[in-house]
Design a protein around this nucleic acid. Structure first.
Length: 669
DNA sequence: CGCCACACTTAGCAGCGCTTGA
DNA sequence: TCAAGCGCTGCTAAGTGTGGCG
């Protein structure tokens, strides 16, 4: 796919583009100079940043010349070396050597060649995961009571009891399934004596334990600055030691280097396994993955790893099997890493390829609505939903193992309602089902007559709990998509539709003469359109009403202030008219400025209020992070001279460093 | 073809620390 | 300077999709 995204060409005229970039930055700074009087503090900061950047670019381009030469020599050497390695089937020795030469500046992996043989790395070294701290038994004075009588628990039983006591305030400790599952698993940890005594959860009193933990967390909050700093430093030390690995010559940040601590499982939605005990993971459960010639991570003293393997066809550093669902958990790299970034980039390139053939695919599935074969009609209607409504594919799930949620292919009869006519619209389909994370999808949309007739056909002679698409599943659908385009799967439609919507909405919503905050609001609105499409919801923040009210009162106060200021201006004006002296003219001028300033502040507040209100139940983060080609946003920022910091925070900028570096203002998704 | 194991992406939420504004 | 509230970050659950096997 190197050719598909044109990275070969990109490489050639990189120098030219770099020069252009410098020019752009220069003109940007000029622009900032011109508007300096209007600048707020944050603008100034950004201005300084851009100036800093320009200096760096200059120095770097001088350095680059030398560096490139060195790199070419190195690459040549490495090529030879690689061949040798392949012959002997040894690992990557060169990788180890170059680590020390790690350059100060950020590594631009996107300017390098990718592996084409399916391997993910040549060299991988890390320190292994960090385990959850051992259980600390409760102090003597904290008791557990059964039937009102004080009783001490054995440490294993006590530990599980503490998990429950920490959750007492949560609603789910009142749920039957939760309590049942918890009690069953708790009893497994008890001694036979405890088991025979403790037979009813209702007779258990955890309140003293609960109080103790509340006091503990209160004490943590009350800690002095020094104590807090000490903890912070210790965390930083652990991060420095365990939070990074070396992968192919580069130090990379690990995403989750801590093993999940034991606790009570809380699934989302109506989960049949809620309350079950999530076991403590020991070194003996953990498989380590690293390269043969690396310094292998050491298991904690007196323990051993389950296995140490050297599989460079996968990206994980460590894995273990979790006991609730029996699924495998992994330790992997941070999104800013090469291995994640390349994949992310590739995802958007696939979506861009879909853009080129989507018209054809749409024509095709519309045609298939008329097919003689039921399975083809079902496939075509499902695909239409996935395309139009950005539904997820909908794999089958094991019944009783997870919450009852569905996606497109697993929709059941009970999840849709057909209305030949509704609110003046023809052929309306009403969707109402729980999707991923048990988030409700509710939508009423008019569809084409043919789709409607097909749906009626699919529903014939079926019960509520029967599958809507009984001749279809995700693997059939994806196999079909694979034939239409290389690399095409159901989820590519979500990516494609999200990104194209953002691009198109940005075009519609951005008005050139608006100021920066107004443009950012437009961006958020475009982002919101995507979030609505993808049904990314959130619980309204607990303090929403309150904070909205306080914002409103601020606005009201501002309005009052504006009114007063205008009045003062009027008075000053009339005074100045009659007096005709320099002093009164100056007063008018200052009053005028005050009015202007207050007007600006008011507008800013109003923009903020609108933005927040519209965002009440919609989460923008997920689409920004997973569905929107970052190059669209970066291009938009460059086009309108919006600092990219307004759109992406630090973490996001790290994840999208590739896009920030490579996208020009004329990037087209 | 169906099933399962596995790898990897996508998802919402809680808690905490930093920013903001009085 | 300090409290309030907001945004960030980490956490981990819950999806998607592939490939191998019988």
């Amino acid at each position: 796919w190197k050719h598909i995204d044109g990275s070969v060409e990109r490489h050639k005229d990189r120098e030219k583009r770099k020069e252009e970039k410098v020019q752009r930055t220069r003109s940007l700074i000029k622009l900032h100079f011109n508007t300096l009087s209007k600048c707020t503090c944050s603008h100034l900061l950004i201005f300084y940043r851009s100036e800093y950047k320009i200096k760096r670019i200059k120095v770097e381009s001088v350095k680059k010349g030398i560096k490139r030469k060195q790199k070419e020599e190195y690459d040549e050497g490495e090529d030879k070396h690689k061949k040798k390695c392949k012959d002997k089937k040894t690992g990557d020795i060169a990788g180890k050597k170059k680590v020390k030469k790690e350059p100060e500046e950020k590594w631009k992996w996107w300017e390098e060649e990718r592996y084409t043989d399916g391997s993910k790395w040549r060299f991988l070294e890390h320190k292994g995961p960090v385990f959850a701290p051992a259980y600390e038994p409760l102090p003597e004075h904290v008791h557990f009571y059964y039937e009102g009588k004080m009783s001490n628990l054995s440490p294993p039983a006590e530990e599980v009891a503490t998990f429950f006591s920490k959750m007492l305030d949560h609603e789910y400790t009142t749920k039957d399934i939760f309590r049942k599952n918890f009690f069953k698993d708790w009893r497994k940890e008890m001694t036979s004596e405890e088991k025979s005594k403790i037979t009813d959860l209702k007779k258990c009193d955890f309140s003293e334990m609960s109080q103790y933990f509340k006091a503990q967390s209160e004490a943590r909050k009350q800690m002095t600055k020094e104590e807090k700093l000490k903890i912070k430093e210790e965390n930083e030390r652990i991060l420095e030691e365990y939070g990074f690995c070396v992968m192919d010559n580069h130090k990379e940040r690990i995403g989750n280097f801590r093993i999940e601590p034991p606790g009570l499982f809380r699934g989302r939605g109506d989960h049949p396994k809620m309350g079950m005990l999530k076991r403590r993971i020991r070194p003996e459960d953990v498989i380590i993955n690293c390269s043969k010639d690396s310094k292998h991570p050491k298991p904690p003293p007196g323990t051993r790893w389950k296995e140490v393997r050297h599989d460079n066809k996968v990206t994980w550093l460590a894995s273990w099997t979790e006991n609730i669902q029996g699924s495998i958990k992994y330790i992997m790299l941070n999104p800013s890493s090469r291995i994640k970034g390349e994949k992310d980039w590739q995802k958007y390139e696939t979506a861009r390829r879909l853009k080129k053939c989507v018209d054809h695919i749409r024509a095709q599935y519309r045609d298939d609505w008329k097919s003689k074969e039921m399975r083809i009609r079902q496939r075509a209607v499902a695909l239409y939903f996935i395309d139009k409504l950005a539904l997820r594919a909908g794999n089958e799930k094991e019944e009783g193992e997870t919450a009852d949620t569905v996606g497109c292919c697993s929709l059941r009869v009970e999840h849709i309602k057909l209305y030949p006519e509704l609110d003046g619209q023809d052929f309306v389909v009403e969707f109402d089902f729980l999707g991923k994370d048990s988030i409700r999808y509710y939508n009423k949309i008019p569809v084409e007559k043919r789709v409607f007739k097909n749906l009626q056909l699919f529903l014939e002679n079926k019960q509520a709990e029967d599958d809507l698409f009984d001749r279809l599943n995700t693997s059939i659908l994806n196999k079909h998509l694979q034939e239409l385009m290389d690399g095409l799967t159901a989820k590519v439609f979500r990516t494609y539709n999200a990104s194209i919507t953002l691009q198109q909405q940005l075009k519609v919503l951005t008005s050139p003469d608006e100021n920066v905050p107004a443009k950012v609001l437009s961006y958020n609105r475009a982002n919101r359109a995507v979030a609505i499409l993808c049904n990314h919801q959130r619980a309204p923040p607990k303090t929403f009403e309150k904070s909205m009210q306080s914002l409103q009162s601020k606005i009201d106060a501002k309005k009052q202030q504006l009114f007063a200021a205008k009045k003062e201006l009027k008075v000053a004006k009339s005074e100045s008219k009659s007096l005709h002296d320099e002093k009164s003219r100056k007063v008018v001028e200052t009053k005028r400025k005050a009015v202007q300033r207050i007007e600006e502040q008011l507008m800013k507040l109003e923009v903020q209020a609108t933005d927040r209100e519209e965002n009440k139940q919609i989460a923008l983060g997920t689409s920004k992070l997973n569905y929107l080609d970052p190059r669209i946003s970066v291009a938009w920022c460059k086009k309108w001279s919006i600092p990219v910091e307004k759109i992406y925070n630090k973490t996001q900028r790290e994840k999208f460093a590739w896009a920030i570096d490579m996208a020009d203002e004329d990037f087209e998704f």
